[in-house]
Amino acid sequence: MSATLWISFFSYAVTTAISPGPNNILALHEVSTYGLNKSKSLLLGIYAGFLCVMIVCGTFSLILAAYMPGVMHYLKTIGFVYILYLAYRTATSKRPGKEERRPASSSFLRGFILQFLNVKIILWGLTSFISYVLPSYSSMTAIACFILLSAAIGNTATHLWAVAGALLHKVIGRYWRPVNLIMALLLIYSAISLLL
């Protein structure tokens, strides 16, 4: 891969990973609501699921692009509906009381499963592999390295949003309703952008 292609790959990967999306919004919301310690399980689920999705994208990108292009339409539709559901849940959630425990749905499994419904990262992974990696590299070692690199970029971006949730906890707590509505609107934007 040439230096220009590397720069292009990193520009695309970092910009897309850091933009608002289901992982980033959910991490911000979860940590600002329940704190970093109580959100670790969900965050670990997101990180593990993201890595698994990158493995799938790296392994099957050529097959999906060449033989099953129609599957992307169904993934987009499922992802669109699920992201709208997350937006609804965010917009209508109630402020937790001091004694309220995190919901059972804030689990490793919830974070993990979200990755397989998160069309943003699926498309991000497929685009990365089809546009940048596979034209220059075909060895399993190179693909494995790009799987790890992609997972590191995506999970770092999500973790930055989680840290922002921890740092802005008091501000978010004070302006609970407007912040939740803004996050819900960002999720709606993410959902709509999948269909454009």
Rank of each mutant, 00 (worst) to 15 (best):
E100Q: 15
G154R: 01
A166F: 04
A142T: 06
V163L: 08
A152W: 00
I78R: 09
I78M: 13
V179R: 13
I55F: 10
V171W: 00
A27W: 01
L42S: 04
F80T: 08
S138N: 12
F108E: 11
L195G: 09
F10G: 06
T59C: 10
I78N: 06
I172P: 03
P20R: 05
L187W: 03
L64K: 01
T90E: 03
I25G: 07
V14I: 09
G79W: 06
K40V: 13
R89V: 02
G45M: 01
S150F: 05
I122K: 12
S150V: 03
L64W: 00
L51W: 01
L5V: 11
L26I: 08
P178Y: 00
H73A: 15
F129K: 02
V53G: 09
S39F: 05
T141K: 10
T16V: 12
F129N: 07
R101Y: 04
I130R: 14
A151M: 08
L134W: 01
S93I: 14
R101A: 13
T33D: 02
I18M: 04
I130A: 13
K170S: 11
L75F: 14
G49S: 08
T90N: 06
I83L: 07
Y137T: 10
V179G: 13
R102N: 10
I122L: 12
I188E: 05
G165N: 06
A144F: 04
T158S: 04
P103A: 13
I153K: 00
S193P: 05
Y132T: 13
A191Q: 05
I18N: 03
W161R: 01
I192Y: 03
I78A: 15
I7P: 03
T4G: 14
L181P: 11
I172Y: 03
N24M: 07
L43A: 08
I192D: 13
M54H: 03
G49K: 08
L185M: 09
A166P: 10
I78W: 03
